[in-house]
Design a protein around this nucleic acid. Structure first.
Lengths: 204, 204
DNA sequence: GTTGGTTGTAAGCGTCTGCTTACAAAAGGT
DNA sequence: ACCTTTTGTAAGCAGACGCTTACAACCAAC
């Protein structure tokens, strides 16, 4: 709220941030193709030409919003927690925009943006990039010689769950209790990744 | 080849079919948004105005291509074979266009079209429709009281596998042996759907 | 051979798209 | 004060988009 600096009226860094935030929200809501640079600029409250000054193109802004944020997050999580963490991140995205503003409310919109943008080269590339990083980590959780395939399958499951829950909004999954979903998925996943830590009982 | 009828040069039914086929292929390759009515008409070898005469709009043509075909196929498969059949259909979609022409080569392009078109209202609606039908069938394979959730999760997995293999083309999964994928997935799925038939050993 | 509905085409309408350009207002250094 | 650089804006370009219209070619019935 209270900024000690005397509030610059022209602030490149601030408008850059505004553009990134607006783009993240819109890409997540509508996907890449259906989001226009004019939409983004309007939501950020700035002129659309600035988008090109700061990011070069719509595509580069999309990369900034999805790939960069996603990668950073992943690298901070230890392998054996990665699946559950990602799964919970996915499930935390409740229906409706929830409390849009606020500090801790910034969720996994990057993944959602990616999910809604499949098909174009845009998302396919960054998707593969992110996917390979995730898969590599998950593959350390099994000694089977088809570790890569197993981790890809688990990853595919995450994608599908995100798609079904947040985009298609299939009823049973969209409204399900995250705990129950975690339980079912992790139990099945342990068929493939034998080093997954056993689920702890929620409350004794 | 040899048609006993003397080959009409103007044939509404034939051009309708040509439009549907062209649309199916293009929607599958590029998704809804990135496929233009001009592309479709060009591929079908007809004037684009005919698309509107026969289908009313791009959206209605998309519905015809995805929902109708997908539903028809599903209803012909008994429940306990549905998962494996759908999974194999997905996996049969090898990389590259394979042998494009030919009779038996018409594959699950409808699902692929849907997968590449997530985000727009277009695919979300028909996706939910198809999904509910599939889920209802899969739900008969368990007695658990969260049957709906379980079948949604399995369905989500199929979506994710299709996405990862055919759109994102993640390496390990895209190049994997269908048998091995089936084995892994069905074994894990049996954790949730206990009435799934046990896998038979391929060759004794 | 004329008529009348069907099938096909060429051209274009209005709108939206990503992106560029020309220029003004503010900030900062000297 | 002056000048340069940074930050912002208004206007518009060229192309693509979904869709419509006006009209020609074909075919069957009479």
């Amino acid at each position: 709220m209270s900024a000690d600096r005397p509030e610059r009226r022209r602030d490149a860094a601030a408008t850059r941030r505004a553009l990134v935030d607006a783009a993240a929200a819109l890409f997540a809501d509508r996907g890449y193709e259906r989001t226009t640079v004019r939409d983004i600029a309007a939501r950020a409250g700035v002129n659309q030409a600035l988008l090109f000054r700061y990011f070069g193109s719509k595509q580069l802004l999309f990369n900034e919003v999805t790939a960069i944020a996603g990668l950073r997050r992943m690298r901070e999580t230890p392998p054996e927690e990665l699946l559950e963490t990602a799964l919970r991140g996915l499930l935390a995205t409740g229906p409706g925009p929830a409390s849009e503003v606020g500090e801790g409310a910034r969720r996994d919109r990057a993944l959602e943006a990616f999910l809604r943008s499949t098909g174009g080269d845009a998302a396919t590339r960054t998707g593969r990039l992110l996917g390979q990083e995730y898969a590599a980590v998950l593959a350390t959780l099994t000694d089977a010689d088809d570790a890569a395939l197993r981790s890809d399958l688990i990853l595919a499951w995450l994608l599908g769950i995100g798609l079904t829950r947040n985009v298609v909004r299939q009823e049973a999954l969209a409204g399900a209790d995250p705990e129950e979903v975690c339980d079912l998925v992790l139990r099945a996943a342990r068929t493939m990744l034998e080093k997954l830590p056993p689920r702890q009982e929620p409350e004794p």
